[in-house]
Amino acid sequence: MATTLTRGASGAATSGGTARQAPPRKPRLGRWMADRAVLFIGILVLVYTFVPIGYIIALSFNQPSGRSATAAFEAFTWGNWSTICDPDGLCESIRLSFAVSITATILATVLGTLMAFALVRHSFRGRAASNLVIFLPMATPEVVMGASLLAMFVSLGFDSVLGFITIVLAHVLFCLSFVVVTVKARLVGMDSRLEQAAMDLYANEWQTFRRVTLPLAMPGIVAAALLAFSLSFDDFIVTNFTAGQSVTFPLYVYGSKLKGFPPQLFVVGSLMFLVSFAIVIGGELWRRRRP
């Protein structure tokens, strides 16, 4: 029962075991390096993941000679940042992407959270089968999921109405499993005695949920919503199958392959990075401020 192990304490004791080791020691510098080698490699991997981001930000200040931003950096300009909406349809595609991902996120988060609660808090026949059905979409390559949806829409005669609704239907589908898994992880780790304590303190079922369960599950639900949003906003493959004539931002980028990539795309890319980075960092700071 007494699982009061705090990670802080175990992490702090990192070098505790060294004192008792036998005399023949590695030279100090070597030891220092060995201790930090993993950290160093980790940081190198992180740096590697940022390389294309640097490239995208650099290209957002590029003034290409032709209509398309090429691989090479030609001349510096601030111009792209003030003319984001100049390329035909770019801002419309961003707007559509936001509309799609916000709708899909809300739907997927609500449905997925309910399912997670059902699976963790209630035992009933068919729970194992339900878990399997929820896992299957994650084990299905996106191209198959997109193709099957398109085949269904076509056979139902929906091909003329492909667009916002069909994209949202599809996005909720592939976000749902991730939401369930994320919220479930949070609920499983939750101490059920807190809810029992609330019941013991005169909170009825609804009040217990509202005052204790929901606030405690919230970090998991928020994480799931963020995950759903980023999966949805960035999705290309499934969207490509279900969008019909509609153009989301990823589809716009893909479509520019033929016409040439306008440099404003990289402004949008930079903004996506900077804004979400700011939100996450801000959230982290806010979290630290109030313990």
Binding site: M1, A2, T4, D191, R193, L194, Q196, A197, A198, D200, L201, V212
Partner: peptide, 10 residues
């Protein structure tokens, strides 16, 4: 009312 094992404080 109950004082829970390891307290169960919110």
């Amino acid at each position: 009312n109950t004082v829970f094992q390891s307290y169960a404080l919110f």
